[in-house]
């Protein structure tokens, strides 16, 4: 398969970038999107050109490191997959693909398609953990958790923090990410002792990082590679308002 790539090239955070057109030739339909970029980069390196910088790590859809806006959609046209799990057979031979980094004030471009997502780390540092002593591994069923809550907590915990929600949102809001991180703890008994403090601190850090305000458009849910539900945002709002009202 052959593709025309319009790739955002930017030397560093200070310089201004521009699109550069490349040809990806003889690409296997079974190549992942990142493998296709590897082929293009190998050719560029052979010619002595600077390869396209992009983030990647596990390449099996579980680490949240990769992420490219492909033809205006974070992680490309398929739902519920990361960029590394997107295969070239999902495109048509001869397609022109526009590759852009996540665009958000809070995610400054480091180089080409790589952005700095440490704003997410700061939000987690503000309270996305449990610091109480939860003791040794408890007896099975020693701590009763309703099945529905366990499922919802697990669904929220599937968030890999890739930032596609921010990239997709017209407001560059991080509410889906924060709501997933608040929810998976708020739904379980171990998260209760610090729940009020946690939600206030994480929302405050989110605002300070320069993310936009959620307007419930649902673009985040549509692009999330882990299908994190907008239900979590309702829970985050509820947790936050209750923490403001009652401590």
């Amino acid at each position: 398969m052959n593709f025309t790539l319009n790739v955002w090239r930017q030397k560093n955070g200070q310089s201004s970038g521009q699109f550069v057109t490349y040809q990806a030739k003889d690409i296997s339909p079974d190549a992942s999107f990142l493998e296709m970029l590897d082929v293009v980069n190998n050719e560029m390196e052979a010619k002595g050109e600077e390869p396209i910088a992009f983030d990647h790590d596990c390449r099996e859809g579980i680490c949240g490191t990769c992420g490219i806006a492909i033809n205006g959609r974070p992680h490309g046209p398929r739902n519920a997959v990361t960029t590394c799990q997107l295969y070239m057979r999902n495109f048509r031979d001869g397609d022109t693909l526009t590759l852009e980094p996540w665009r958000a004030q809070a995610f400054p471009v480091v180089r080409d398609l790589v952005v700095d997502r440490s704003a997410f780390d700061k939000i987690i540092q503000a309270g996305g953990f449990i610091s109480i002593n939860t003791g040794n591994a408890p007896d099975a069923n020693g701590l009763p958790v309703p099945k529905d809550d366990a499922e919802r907590a697990m669904d929220a915990a599937a968030c890999i923090g890739c930032g596609a929600c921010v990239a997709a949102c017209k407001n560059a809001s991080a509410m889906l990410f924060v709501s997933a991180k608040v929810s998976h703890l708020a739904l379980l008994p171990q998260g209760q002792p610090e729940s009020r403090k946690r939600v206030k601190s994480m929302v405050q850090t989110m605002d300070e990082a320069g993310f936009g305000n959620c307007t419930n458009t649902g673009a985040c849910e549509a692009e999330c590679p882990k299908s994190i539900s907008l239900d979590n945002i309702a829970r985050l709002n509820r947790e936050f308002l209750l923490s403001k009202l009652f401590g």
């Binding site: 806006a69 852009e100 004030q105 400054p108 017209k170 560059a172 320069g210 305000n213 458009t217 673009a219």
Partner: peptide, 25 residues
């Protein structure tokens, strides 16, 4: 505030998957 949160550079191609009424409030 939301416009500013996008940052200095917007998307050249944007295929937003949300419902139109929500985007044009």
């Amino acid at each position: 505030e939301n416009k500013a949160a996008r940052g200095p550079q917007g998307y050249a191609v944007n295929d937003n998957q949300s419902e139109a009424p929500s985007r044009f409030m």
